[in-house]
Design a protein around this nucleic acid. Sequence first.
DNA 1: ATTATTGTATTAGGCGCCTAATACAGCAAT
DNA 2: ATTGCTGTATTAGGCGCCTAATACAATAAT
Lengths: 123, 123
Amino acid sequence: MTWELSSDRPIYAQLIEQLELKICAGKYPPGSRMPPVRELAREASVNPNTMQRALAGLEEEGLLHTHRTSGRFVTEDEKLVMQVKNRLVREHIREFMDKMLRLGFDHEEIKAALSAMMKEEKE
Amino acid sequence: MTWELSSDRPIYAQLIEQLELKICAGKYPPGSRMPPVRELAREASVNPNTMQRALAGLEEEGLLHTHRTSGRFVTEDEKLVMQVKNRLVREHIREFMDKMLRLGFDHEEIKAALSAMMKEEKE
DNA sequence: ATTATTGTATTAGGCGCCTAATACAGCAAT
DNA sequence: ATTGCTGTATTAGGCGCCTAATACAATAAT
């Protein structure tokens, strides 16, 4: 799971989302230490300032906290991580449903289309 | 169905998507005349230049064509409209699935979560 | 013919995002 | 004590997006 950045949205916003994702997916477990800003920036091929900005966003959210000189750490509050994960799930589902409804699909048709695509996937 | 613009992405790109949606959903039927740029711009609370840019995008795509002075018209090629609609559907499903898979859901769990949210919806 | 309406083009300016290059402060390791 | 690594702040510049204000060309409407 690497870094996927597109140019049609602010990079720092995309970084926030992907960091959230990585934390919720357990790539950066609760309590663990994050790689330093400069390294994360290098990984993502991004300016350190931009990565810094993204990390600051996660801190406001409470997902990260900083020990000024020894690094940045993922929260140990697993409940919080789960809350964020649930929030993300709900957002993704809502967004998906909205778009499909606007295209004229009803609930059943949405499920059918999804199932069909999953079936394709497996081949 | 009005205009929903957020500030975290280029407006002209959002306009393109929403115009595609409106055309695919039948709000602007094949062969029909589009409202003038200035009016669409007013509707969307956007600068005419920005709306112009979005419309130019739809023209490259073949969804619209222009009679220089009498206005802009939706293509009469219903097949093309359907193709675009199918493309949009596939894109939305793929994007949704990607995000959910990254969050650790498998196919069955994705369906279950979707169904659960639909059920909520109905109350 | 005149007028209004259409799409289109141009210029200027503001603003946010991103990069680059530094510099500093504070703690850990040696 | 010194060195290195950490987060953090600052400045400068480039670039794209967006708005605003015009202006023009070509057709439709009168």
